[in-house]
Amino acid sequence: MDKRVANADAAIEKLFDGATILVGGFGACGNPENLIAAVLRKGTKNLTTVSNNAGMVEFGLGLLLKSRQIRKMICSYPGENKFAEQQVLNHEIEIELNPQGTLVERMRAGGAGIPAFYTPTGVGTVIAEGKEVREFNGQKYLLEPCLRGDFAFIKAWKGDRWGNLVFRKTARNFNPVMATAADYVIAEVEELVELGSLDPDSIHTPGIFVNAIFQGAKYEKPIEKRIVRKRA
C-alpha cells in the first residue's frame, strides 16, 4: 500500500466543479497551503468550502475568494478578510455561519456515522431558526445535522506512505476531525517519513482515514498576530 502522490496538483486530479471541500486550519495555522495553491492553478469553480475562517487577503482560502472560485462558505469566524466581506455583503457568495463547536461536531459526527445530534449551543439565537428543539432533563437542545465533504484538505507535520499523520502544537485544530469526514482525504505534510518511523502510540490520525499524501513543496506559514515580549 502506497498513498503517496507526486505533488499537490496530482493530489487534486479528481477535484470537480461544485465540490464541497473541508479545509483544515485555524486562521493561517495548520493550513493546507500547497493544496489551496493547486486549486487556484486548476481553476475549479463553484466550490463550497468548510473551514473555520475565510483566510487572509493574500493567503489560504482568501486566494480562492479573490479568484472567485468559491460559491459558498461554511465557517464560524469569517471576519478580517475584505474579499469575504465584500462578496458576502454584495450577495455574490453564500455564507452559512455555524458556532465553532457545532461546526466541528457536525464533522466529527459525519466521520463517525452519526447523522445528527442535539447540542445546547445556540438555543434561543438565530442559529436555532428552523431547527428542531428538544428538551432533555429540563434543558433545551438543538438538532444539528452531520456535515461531510467530497474532499478534505489536511495539513499535518509528519506522515508516512500509509497516511498515518502527526500534527504539531495548535496546528492540529480542525485537521484530524476533517480527515474523518470526507469521501477523498488528501494530506499534505512538512515531512514524509519512512513507514515505521512514527511512534504508533503518538499517531494522531491513523492512515485508514487518508487517501493520498504528499510532502508540501514549501511552507509560508504566516503569523497573523505577532505578539512578543521584550527580554528582561
Partner: peptide, 27 residues
C-alpha cells in the same frame, strides 16, 4: 479553543512559532 491547555506568556522576539497561537490568532 483552537486546541490547547496551558497557554503561556507571549514569546520572546525571534521565538515566535506559527504553529503555536491562541484563539485570537496571537503567538
Amino acid at each position: 479553543e483552537n486546541g490547547m491547555l496551558g497557554i503561556g506568556p507571549s514569546p520572546f522576539e525571534g521565538e515566535e512559532d506559527p504553529d503555536l497561537i491562541n484563539a485570537g490568532k496571537e503567538t
